[in-house]
Design a protein around this nucleic acid. Structure first.
Lengths: 342, 342
DNA sequence: CATTTTTATTGAGCCTCTTCATAGACTCGG
DNA sequence: CCGAGTCTATGAAGAGGCTCAATAAAAATG
């Protein structure tokens, strides 16, 4: 069944049916009603592919995620998807499972005109490819980004956030502060590590090189890195961990080692996942507006797709230091994620 | 740039270029090499939409998920996506955010020929719609399902799993066992509740109606329902919770109430999320092979798409009772999710 | 050289949208 | 009151890029 069938039944031309569907204002009221009635009667559904082919618009965006099972990303993804949908766009999911080469596979969808634009939550490909890509297609970076490229980007100020949370540890009296990072190959790893270093330096605190351990996102990894820190001669009294997942692992490692958080070792995380506020000790962390980052990124992409010029390319979202128990400066007990906000 | 440009440059017809791309065996070696060279030279990328239009195949499947931020689903989703990709299919993501009406919106993509088939991780629409849908398009249900319909389905045997875990509680000596469920409007809620009832009945244990509380998936909800149970005159000594998230909330409620798990109240969960094996007390739960469910569902769908007849429509995946600490019968401490398996 | 086999080309769609053309209704000034 | 000019509503026709069936050409075989 196709448009011509509807047209025949309604005694109009296919063009009119098409108009009813896409530019209803151009059609006389009665004709329109007639056509709509027939459409419903026959339960006609336009073939989107034919339409996309003709208009050369797929109304589809690609979202490339490094790991969809991480709560942080799935929340951002939801923000993107929701916004896209509201604006009549579909989302093709590209989970790279942390494999760089898979980024490129997904991106082929742009070159092959399947998707009109992309939001990248991971951008590990080389700078030239990315530059080339963004010169040809609307692309927005979210969370991760790349320096020196003129690509619209949505993220928090990771350096400043990392500095803030490290400084909080310093303010409550810590001097030997370690950092479980995500290697500096990832821009976020680099930024958060830099923030940590800045905070330490500006307070004239030395950083023992072995205090900086490189983890790999997940709970287990946080556990393992913490075990290393615990084994040190010159053991730190506080640790700033790259993200909440690893921070949870770290806390567990401390407990398993017979020590207490925060009394013996303070630990702070990053991201403010739901579970960070649920387990004792409640975790001090940096809140990122995950859903909003997704929304904003989708919003920017949609604007690019409409050809709207974007003056401010770097959108910095507001983060928040959430002080709870794990840093050793907890003020009063509150239930369910409510906490003193700074 | 299009195929004809490549053809011209290579002194062949567009049809030959098309064959090089799609049925290379039909083309003489030299011609093929020549064409490929030109393709690379010009960096030609075929227009997928035109191709899809012509062949009437989009190589795209739709995955409808009730809530992408829940770890259980994102793991299943990954299994689906991975398998789809391996077989040259793309995935359009449909996150309904638990709104039934949004299921239908996504499903329109099938009627409009955008997607060729669908995996539904949620099926709350009315039976007739679903029946109608599956009669017209390849559809596979995963996790949730609907009784009495001849639709391929992948899941564990929820009734038996629930019975198993409840019986374990009985075996370690509990008699007053409560259940925090997900209302019986959802088939999984019904099944797990039934398994619980079966176990209780077959051991002649009475169920106090107020022992069955209806939660809503997340940690907070588990907390709240547990608070209710704790307030009962006739307080249960053990609780079987619908899923791990709510079980974590329940455990927290017990602790906040000044009681211990499992000594005062035993708690068991369902799903075996990574975090279930990480927080003390380590949680006894039912392991579902999440990734494999996704793989299998995608696999079935792909077979349907190829027109292969599927004899066994109901695939029951193997679950596993993972005994850890929270049920009060922990045997020996093991790190990182390793536990006694039954 | 005739016949079979292999390889390449021709041309017709796939279904929808949009431009252009037309016909009718309407406006308005002379 | 009429003809020119405006609008409105519809139709006719073609294009969009690719693939496949039918056809033709070339190569291989006997």
């Amino acid at each position: 069944m196709q448009m011509r069938d509807v047209a025949k039944r309604a005694n109009v031309s296919p063009a009119t049916v098409s108009r009813v569907l896409r530019q209803p204002d151009l059609v006389k009221k009665e004709t329109k009603e007639k056509v709509i009635q027939i459409i419903n009667e026959l339960n006609y559904k336009p073939n989107m592919i034919a339409s996309q082919f003709r208009t050369r618009e797929t109304k589809t965006i690609l979202v490339v995620v490094p790991d969809i099972t991480r709560p942080f990303f799935s929340e951002v993804l939801r923000g993107i998807e929701h916004t896209a949908l509201q604006n009549g766009y579909q989302v093709i999911l590209g989970d790279t499972e942390n494999r760089i080469e898979r980024e490129k596979e997904y991106i082929e969808l742009l070159y092959r005109k399947q998707a009109e634009g992309a939001v990248l939550l991971t951008a590990r490909m080389d700078r030239d490819s990315l530059k080339e890509l963004s010169s040809q297609f609307p692309v927005v970076l979210a969370c991760e980004y790349m320096d020196g490229l003129d690509i619209p980007t949505v993220s928090i100020d990771n350096i400043s956030s990392a500095r803030k949370v490290t400084e909080h540890l310093i303010n409550v009296g810590h001097r030997k502060i370690a950092h479980i990072s995500k290697g500096t190959d990832v821009i976020l790893g680099k930024d958060r590590q830099r923030g940590y270093q800045q905070a330490m330096m500006s307070h004239d605190l030395p950083i023992n090189p072995s205090w900086v351990q490189e983890g790999d996102y997940d709970i287990d990894s946080g556990y393992k890195q913490m075990v290393k820190l615990l084994a040190l001669e010159d053991r730190p009294t506080a640790v700033f961990v790259f993200n909440d997942e690893m921070a949870l692992g770290s806390i567990k490692a401390v407990k398993d080692h017979g020590l207490r958080v925060p009394e013996d070792i303070a630990i702070v995380g990053f991201d403010n996942l739901p579970m960070a506020s649920f387990f004792s000790p409640y975790m001090t962390t940096i809140d990122q507006p995950k859903y909003e980052i997704g929304q904003k990124a989708a919003d920017l992409l949609l604007r690019l797709l409409k050809g709207i010029f974007i003056k401010r390319k770097k959108i910095v979202m507001k983060d928040e230091l959430i002080i709870r128990e794990s840093c050793g400066f907890y003020q009063k007990e509150q239930l369910f994620g409510e906490a003193e906000k700074v």
